[in-house]
Write a protein that binds this DNA or RNA. Structure first.
Lengths: 339, 339
DNA sequence: ATATTAATTTCAAACGTTTGCGGTGACGAT
DNA sequence: ATCGTCACCGCAAACGTTTGAAATTAATAT
């Protein structure tokens, strides 16, 4: 019995021919007689020969591996992105090596080093919240490994990016609320050091400006998770002139606000309309279902990987960076209604 | 400028010494003079030398890669598992190569072949729903690659498994329902060719038997997703003696049943109590929140990977397979209440 | 001066595959 | 006989690294 998997050498030895002949026979090279080809292919099938990708990587200096670094996997948007990545990678013949940074800068660096050691052909990154220095990404590029950033991008590094159109999405959400008759719209927003939080708030403001509605800073509060929403929403409702709509920066926050509003005794959507962001399962199981912005994580994954694969195939490292924007779209459900 | 990344040869050439000396210097081998060591290490750091993992894999016939095949990533339970996998793999110095089968048998086979080609050191698998033939998994084992199955396991193949205690979980859920006074408990179940479906139904039956409640087969229907629950729940409620509780095989089905029940006009939990399985976000945002069984996906990932890493390190392929069980626990929320 | 030992370093093979080039043998043409 | 032309196949190097064994150098002992 052989130990380990079957190699070309094993086949060559068994057939009394050289390894190079086996290699050529397997690729249907014209130099090889059909008799030999048949013999080789039969034995290869019988023995379940599988080419050793490691040896091929070494030979060709090409691993056919795409590296992915993501802040955390347990998150509907990110897992959707990974799904899209895996899909394109599979079709294009690449394998996916996956790392999560857990929002830690240290770990992100360790991940990049593993990627460098593994000689991956390209990298997809969504940065950790902690990351403020980008030299580890530069090192990747200095070594000829193309990178595409997605969602959490890096403006200091001129690089390929794929992002969600947060501004337009937020604008559409608030525009919708105004069009159905809402006049005092609160915004539960994300921290402003994140581009995402900035852009969504800008969209909110721009929609109000378009409709000539005065911006009331008291209606904009930092609140970006479920628990916080349960806590802070009641206070919003106690204002002397309470809001008649809430635009939440993400889905879970919207769900928290929804529950809080109902608990206080207001009806949704009759008294208060609510819109969230990101279309996960949550929006579809609340009562009523949440109007929300589909964020197309899957498509972000697809686009980013398509772009990366192009860069890899191209082989050139002095390209003009591109930023692709994935549009969001508003899904109107039970939590908003014409007043 | 060198093309590609720095190698030991580059360092050797620059310093006018042999590659083997560089290799030994980097590993602090006693044969090498400290002067040489210093020179090598300085240059290695200056040039950002990173060992080529591909060459190491080939040399040592060990890739330090763990392969993962999962039915779909966009799923709270599975992404939790992956997170656990990645955590242990990172700590143990392994990289994770990830594939999703998309519940397709064909694709699962393709994934296994990619894993074989990549010469991964071990594999973690949760099978696709379609899979009924297991020869591709046998091939992995025949080639000395240990496998640990998780959640969707395979009883025909005697193998290492990490599973959730579906039986005990289901039993606990139904026991709880009976204890709060429910008498006619319906079960929305998964297909019975899946072990998971079987075990959860067994737990359901056992709890009824324990409490000497007759089993009514009309109350057990195959129904394991949101849409189906919306469709079939109303029919259940039209029975001459309708159920006063529903035990759903998973979270989304429970959420669908909840919405359907409310739509028909029954109240939850006053008229009908509902329990789900898996503790994702969904259970926490429905109205009322769902009583459910926490499934500890992260822990499943941890345990499975720990087991796999042990098997890899051990190196022996004729081990006695082990099945580790991760306990569930019941989280009582608003959808069930004392009657 | 010569043998012995120790301290460093280099050589070469190996992991599995590909690939340019050279080689062999057969066959027909001159 | 000699040459050319095919058809077919093997050699050897290369990818980057490790590692047993051999080689070199220097220092010590006789």
């Amino acid at each position: 019995m052989r130990s380990g998997q079957v190699t070309i050498k094993d086949i060559a030895k068994e057939l009394g021919i050289s390894a190079s002949t086996v290699s050529r026979a397997l690729k249907d090279h014209p130099d090889i007689s059909s008799k030999t080809k048949v013999a080789v292919n039969e034995l290869a099938k019988k023995w379940n020969y599988r080419p050793n990708a490691v040896a091929l990587s070494l030979r060709h200096s090409k691993s056919n591996i795409i590296g992915v670094i993501i802040p955390e996997i347990v998150h509907h948007f990110f897992s959707s992105v990974i799904s899209g990545i895996e899909e394109i990678a599979y079709k294009a013949g690449y394998n996916v090596m996956m790392f999560q940074s857990n929002e830690s800068y240290e770990r992100e660096i360790a991940n990049v080093q593993a990627l460098l050691s593994s000689r991956v052909d390209g990298v997809l990154v969504s940065m950790s919240k902690e990351t403020k220095d980008f030299s580890h990404f530069k090192e990747l590029r200095d070594n000829g490994i193309p990178i595409v950033f997605f969602d959490r991008i890096c403006n200091e590094l001129s690089s390929d990016n794929v992002i969600v159109d947060d501004f337009a999405g937020a604008f559409a959400a608030v525009d919708h609320l105004i069009n159905i008759g809402c006049k005092r719209i609160a915004h539960l927003s994300a921290p402003q050091h994140m581009l995402l939080g900035q852009n969504r708030q800008k969209g909110y403001r721009q929609a109000l400006i378009k409709h000539k509605i005065a911006i009331d800073e008291d209606l904009i509060i930092k609140c970006d998770n479920y628990e916080e929403a349960m806590l802070k929403t009641p206070e919003l409702l106690k204002l002397s002139s309470p809001p008649d709509a809430i635009f939440a920066v993400n889905e879970l926050t919207a769900a928290g606000a929804l529950l809080a509003v109902k608990k206080v005794g207001f009806r949704v959507p009759e008294d208060i309309s609510i819109v969230g962001f990101t279309d996960g399962l949550v929006s579809r199981v609340t009562d009523p279902n949440l109007t929300t912005l589909e964020q197309h994580g899957f498509e972000v994954g697809l686009k980013a990987t398509e772009l990366l694969v192009d860069r890899i195939k191209d082989g050139e490292m002095d390209y003009e960076p591109v930023t692709r924007v994935v549009k969001t779209n508003l899904i109107v459900r039970g939590s908003t209604r014409e007043k």
